[in-house]
């Protein structure tokens, strides 16, 4: 279809949909007023029932925890799909160095970059772990912290270069971290079944409000999600990074010298 044809169809569709969207916007509940009794009930009851202060984590890991298993498995499936797609097409005869265009000058890293990246990578990873651990107490949790931990791995690449990245962020380790995280989540959901309780029932001691280890099973699930998310995002980053590897037979100078 021609460019004009596409745009004309889009315009026609938008013109048809615009009045409908306007009607829906008018019919939606007024902005800024509580819409669901469910959310307000959680705000009122869960701090006492589960002794956690972060309601978002409580919804994700306890009240609607079963939905989060589905989401976790979706993340696992998307990561597996991306990894299989990338690995399957890469083939075997590639070297373990990044490819480069012949004749292109590659400047070495400044010492300052290396220093800042080394310090920042460690601090960022600690911060990620902190965000995961305090998931039930302050804003944060396994999902957010896991992504922060994974992004600290990127700083390794920025500061140390490709070979060091491959030595530190090993794909099998990351895959194991991801898989064990998802597995721990499923186990935490299944264990209460052995006592005839519903899946993901909170069976651990709840702890005290505003304490690091409050929320019982939520602490376990939160950590499991942190592992799974850090593993899967690290794995995806690594697989995209592997795409830069050049053919093995190509005679390449050492481009990572500093």
């Amino acid at each position: 279809m021609s460019e004009r044809g596409r745009l004309a169809m889009l315009l026609a569709a938008l013109l048809l949909l615009a009045p409908v969207a306007w009607q829906v916007a008018l019919a939606l509940p007024a902005f800024g007023f509580p819409t669901s009794a469910y959310g307000q009930t959680i705000n009122a009851l869960v701090p006492h029932m589960r002794r956690v202060s972060n309601m978002v984590a409580a919804v994700n890991f306890d009240v609607r925890g079963f939905d989060t298993i589905g989401e976790e498995l979706m993340l696992l499936a998307a990561t597996t799909g991306a990894t299989v797609l990338l690995r399957g097409s890469r083939g075997e005869n590639i070297g373990d160095r990044a490819a480069r265009l012949p004749g292109r000058h590659l400047a070495g890293r400044a010492d300052g970059t290396v220093l800042v990246c080394r310090a920042a990578a460690i601090l960022l990873m600690l911060f990620g772990v902190y965000v995961v651990l305090h998931g039930t107490v302050t804003p944060g949790g396994g999902f957010q912290g896991g992504v922060i931990v994974a992004s600290s791995l990127l700083l390794v690449y920025l500061g140390e270069g490709y070979p060091a990245w491959r030595r530190i962020a090993r794909a099998p380790v990351l895959a194991l971290v991801e898989g064990l995280g998802a597995f721990a989540f499923v186990v935490a959901a299944a264990v209460p079944l052995a006592w005839g309780r519903p899946a993901l029932s909170n069976i651990l001691p709840l702890g005290t409000w505003k304490d690091l280890f409050s929320g019982g099973t939520m602490v376990v699930v939160n950590a499991a999600v942190g592992f799974a998310v850090a593993g899967s995002f690290g794995l995806i980053l690594g697989e995209f990074m592997e795409e830069t590897r050049g053919p093995e037979d190509e005679d390449m100078p050492d481009e990572e010298h500093r």
């Binding site: 705000n43 978002v56 994700n60 939905d67 998307a78 990561t79 990338l86 957010q144 697989e239």
Partner: peptide, 25 residues
């Protein structure tokens, strides 16, 4: 504010990032 919607957005963002990676692959 409603915590359920916040939890939904969190889910949305994480799955969105993973799906974006899959699409880029």
């Amino acid at each position: 504010v409603d915590p359920i919607l916040h939890a939904l957005v969190l889910t949305d963002i994480v799955v969105g990032a993973a799906v974006t990676a899959l699409l880029l692959a």
